[in-house]
Design a protein around this nucleic acid. Sequence first.
DNA 1: CACATGCTATAAGAAACACTGATGGACCCT
DNA 2: AGGGTCCATCAGTGTTTCTTATAGCATGTG
Lengths: 284, 284
Amino acid sequence: MDPHLLRTFVTVTEAGSFSAAAEQLGYTQSAISQQIAALESDLGLPLLHRRPVAPTEAGLRLLEHAGPLLLRIRAARADVLRTAALPAHRLTLAATPLALNSVLALRLAAARAAQPRLRVTVRTCGRDEVARQVADGRAEAGLTDGITAPNDPLRLPEVGPMTTVGVAEEGLVVALPVDHPLAGRAGLRLADLVDAHWLQTTLCPLERLRDLMGDGFRPALDYTGEDVHTVLNLVAAGHGLTLLPASAGHGVPLVAPRLVHRVELLHATLPPGPAAELAARLSP
Amino acid sequence: MDPHLLRTFVTVTEAGSFSAAAEQLGYTQSAISQQIAALESDLGLPLLHRRPVAPTEAGLRLLEHAGPLLLRIRAARADVLRTAALPAHRLTLAATPLALNSVLALRLAAARAAQPRLRVTVRTCGRDEVARQVADGRAEAGLTDGITAPNDPLRLPEVGPMTTVGVAEEGLVVALPVDHPLAGRAGLRLADLVDAHWLQTTLCPLERLRDLMGDGFRPALDYTGEDVHTVLNLVAAGHGLTLLPASAGHGVPLVAPRLVHRVELLHATLPPGPAAELAARLSP
DNA sequence: CACATGCTATAAGAAACACTGATGGACCCT
DNA sequence: AGGGTCCATCAGTGTTTCTTATAGCATGTG
């Protein structure tokens, strides 16, 4: 189970052929063949069907483990190297689109004012990617968001030991088209919207709602991107409803169940430095 | 970051010396010295102080990653091998002491009656160990328990992709000495017990209570074992209070906040076989 | 103070390993 | 049938990673 072989295995399945993987990795086809053979003989099982190349059942299981495993190795390396890193005056903050809301943007401004020499880069990416970037050092800190019960931590992908701090919570609104019959209400209960049309988005995954409320919440439209603006347009056009943090758009406040939009700051266990400073200043 | 080197590194820190680690791993001392040197040169940092041998700061960070990493590698291996395992007629179930309560013991009996050829081994161990054993194949299935809000999943240690199913929930009681002033009550609220003497145990970690209720819940006595009987004796002798599932001992029902004792079944994504059968039959 | 003891580092050779390059067989397409 | 593509295998080679042997450095002891 050498990670080297694991990486080759993953590349082969992605490339769909030994030869293509060889080229991609800078080896000869022969080397790839031997590496896969070594892995298979180590495990005592065939991992790939040949001609065409496709993972066997065992190969599929291994694939499921291989990605996270390689990620954690990179994360461990990055984390160790961080102990030796000089306190830099650059800092990259990875954030999901809804994480850096107005409150946090102001706190970030205050933090920068307090450390004027610090060059800050903000980068928007998806939830998983935020955690990955913080883990393997491409970002010093990250902000993720999600919907949860008040004071409950978010469920984050596990990519290694990492510190998380809740930095903001706010209420949710149900985003509706302006001419929707419910648009004039002062508040809405989720229970009354079980049979409505819903958008399936990363912020408001319907599976999560079904967990809370039981069946229903059938997706009227799947949206796979991360762009809030686009989602608002879809809602306005009547494709379906979605939940948003109150500050992100107009809508009717959600009054039950008590759910909040929560933002968490992620960072590696920090050596003293600008990232630690920032972490302290972003916390409420 | 070869796992081989990582294992050596961990062994050296545990053994406290290169020579001892060499003996333990069946290498010469020279080999160990070279392996550590290779790891240090790969990362570009000293990982160990010598004479006496102790991890440097970077070494400590690496140690924190190394254990989980090696565990996941073993887990991946076990999971892949499982796909090839013949449907055996032996099954090991790892369970925490409070997980296999009377309800589940009955369901287990029914499951065994339905599969009379199946040899079942039950093994009691700690919470982390249950997850580890299921991950790396020493047990086909596991039962863990914990205190949580109704229908909320438990927080489990992440050791790899694994399926969890809630199989039982029951109310909690506050265990008290029989002559305790509150022992006659019909119900108790946790808020009224903030300043009481509490036992710190693995089932009822006071940190968890503080998360829910704020400060307080100072430990009067730390108990680090897993034996319920012993804990009951400690409570009876007035060392402090603790929470227990209602079926595990006498006490006053906890009425607020609404918390339950929850049992979850863990198993690897299963190939059809006796473990899958058992999983189905243990679920409510 | 010389010396024994217990430890790690280094040097040199031997064994194991992992690559390249050449070749062969299976399959597919024309 | 023939050419092309692909993977497996073999032999050869350079590198890696051991073992053995020895040097060097602290610490404890007669």
